[in-house]
Design a protein around this nucleic acid. Structure first.
Lengths: 282, 282
DNA sequence: TCAATTATGAAATAAAATTTCATAAAAGTT
DNA sequence: AACTTTTATGAAATTTTATTTCATAATTGA
């Protein structure tokens, strides 16, 4: 953890003198990294040994080591954090905040992903006879994107964002089919039912959803992506982006598993678009 | 500048002994920040004063100050960079690389966005009688997502990913309508034509595309999102994520412009979903 | 080849940090 | 409240670390 945060957190557990040091440091950390222990002690009106003890209490080896940690905290600058958009933000401000928050959430998501499960999911996908992607609302967008990617692989892929079509498709699925159900909350009733139907018909069900949700319980594999709640403006934001990255990862895993020749094929698919485009004149 | 890079850059201008120090440092900077000047001198087989001179040559005040700089370079850690997926990558590796690359590209995209233009686009959107989103392939996904967001605002919104529907819709558009055309390359013929048709019919055309492209030339406003090419596996990856963030930004700008009362409305829209979901029991 | 310049390290010095230890303050205990 | 124990603190001594000085070695240029 960032040592500045740590100081701020633990300041209540400090002794009186230690608190004085903490305050001086928090007030101007960038000055402190250029101060000697004597200078800092004087600034805080306490003795040098106290500063030293303060450093050790924060699990550093001593004052110089402490300064190193402090320097790193400062350099780390602003690690991405969730920042809420405020009513009076200018375009500059909310743009910055949205980027910040998304990055912070992607960072979170990355840490929460299980590469083991991804590996297994890729296994199943490469062996599938048919792949279906189901989602509603914002997750329909993710399903749509997944279709766009997997479609290139010359595998039968469908995507539905219509409850009835999803149900019919689920009922028609059989062993060897993989059904990917996408829902951030995992609590959308009709999607849980769809997952259930697919499972009953022996399809393999993979959930891109939150762990422990009702939907998760119906899935053979749950790929959960942790993201701070999208509370800002009552719209799904980071969650769907993290889900899209998961799609990218699955698609990438798929192509790698299929080998080099397969990737030449992808190039052909891409090249097939050329005539629909204006030439680039350079 | 990062002091590690600086060392790497200037290594040719160093004397023989200084180069030895540089090599030891570059080989394992994280060890060095915990070494005394004596330890480092010994490691590099040179004397302590040489290390000291080395530090000063790099514009630091001395060895301790140098360590501080070094610590900061390390903390800055690995700024996100584009890393290409390799044939033999494990799930762990490609997952990491995809996250890395996406983050790097979002960082790029953030820097390239013009908040001025965003502001103008938001202006136009809030005044629009009707908003249309057009895209094809991966950009259709973005258009789809945009519809999902703007639809909540109780404004007439359509999205089409069908060329004919797009053309018909464009021809039917009139003054007061805003048409947003999405294309990463900006070279897809049919979309350029759609933009042209919409413009001819006095709609305001906003392009989410690359600056200077044929599509850009047909737009009243061009919101360009710079992203390194998606060359990896012949699939759009980062580009569409950056586009989605731009949609988030536009949607956010929209809601802010509309004021607090409007945002209560959004909450209602979201709450309307409740009965379609399983309750959360805690 | 020889001066001039530059680079280097041993030793001395200076600076900084840490330890030791005595004392003061605070917290318990009767 | 008086006393003991524990904890916190700083002065001084010590140790560690960094820097300076200066003599010598290596390199460069004539």
């Amino acid at each position: 953890m960032n040592i500045l945060e740590k100081i701020a957190n633990e300041i209540d557990t400090f002794s009186k003198s230690e608190r004085k040091v903490a305050e001086v440091i928090l007030a101007s950390p960038s000055t402190v990294i250029h101060s000697s222990i004597a200078a800092l002690a004087k600034q805080a009106n306490i003795s040098e040994p106290t500063v030293n003890r303060f450093c050790r209490r924060l699990d550093t080896k001593g004052y110089p080591d402490f300064k190193l940690h402090l320097a790193q905290s400062l350099a780390n600058g602003t690690p991405y954090v969730n920042r809420h958009v405020d009513e009076n933000d200018t375009a500059d401000e909310y743009t910055e905040k949205i980027f910040e928050s998304t990055m912070a959430n992607l960072d979170l998501a990355r840490k929460s992903l299980s590469t083991n499960l991804i590996n297994r999911a890729v296994d199943l996908l490469t062996q599938a006879n048919k792949i279906s992607f189901f989602g509603l609302g914002a997750s329909a967008v993710v399903a749509h994107d997944a279709q766009n990617k997997f479609f290139r692989f010359n595998v039968p892929v469908v995507y539905f964002d219509d409850i009835l079509m999803q149900r019919m498709s689920a009922i028609n699925s059989t062993q060897g089919d993989v059904v990917i159900v996408i829902s951030h909350t995992g609590r959308t009733k009709s999607l849980v039912e769809v997952a259930h139907l697919a499972k009953e018909n022996d399809a393999t069900v993979i959930g891109i959803t939150s762990a422990g949700s009702p939907l998760a319980k119906e899935c053979h594999i749950v790929l959960s992506v942790d993201v701070a709640e999208d509370t800002d403006l009552y719209m799904p934001m980071s969650s769907r982006i993290a889900q899209l990255m998961l799609i990218d990862i699955l698609a990438t895993g798929f192509t790698l598993r299929r080998g080099a020749k397969f990737r030449d094929n992808l190039k052909k698919v891409k090249d097939s678009l050329r005539s629909s485009r204006f030439e680039r004149k350079e």
